[in-house]
Amino acid sequence: MNHLTPDELVDAVEATLAAARHTHLQQCPHCSREVVQLAAILRESRHVDVPEPSPLFWDHFSDRVRQAIAAEPAPRFAHWFEWPVLAPMAGLALLIFALVSAVPQGGAGLERLQMAVNGPGRSDTDTSAAGTSDKMAASEFADATWDVVSELVGDLDVETAERAGIAIGPGSAESVMLQLTSSEQQELVRLLRAEFQRAGG
């Protein structure tokens, strides 16, 4: 004879025992006694209330919750404004602003930037003459020059950032670079090229 399992005893107490096992329960004094005792303890427990605090407690409780929440930083209900989204965007904006600000200053730094963006031995007129092979190589070109661009922007002077009202930490520009996707990197290169052309570089 298979006695009821703990699961089945719970089902029996809750009156959801399968019909096939109910037959056993009716015939087995051991299982019947067990179910009666469990049901009795459940019934007794169910009737034990939690002591009701005073009405004054509830007023104070709501105040306490309100104060505790007021002491917490505001929750962020809109994911769009969370830092994983904002940080790369702010970094990208800072980067573009800083690079564009650096362009009119000319000199060796400008030449290095232009070389990084346009590639060694290339001029802007080369771009206008670019053919199909250039398009095919565009992706590899962007990747190849990207390391140089990253290296250069990693050394951006702090004064430029401060003039923009934004303080940057050491390595933060490089960190932002690493978070950009390949297509975002290509877009940045395109923006830089356009800016160099506009500045007559």
Partner: peptide
């Protein structure tokens, strides 16, 4: 959950002195 519920009731039975 059902096993925990059963053991909870069985333990209460012992703790409250309803063991036969």
């Amino acid at each position: 959950v059902k096993a925990n519920f059963f053991h909870a009731l069985a333990n209460l039975k012992k703790l409250l002195g309803r063991e036969p």
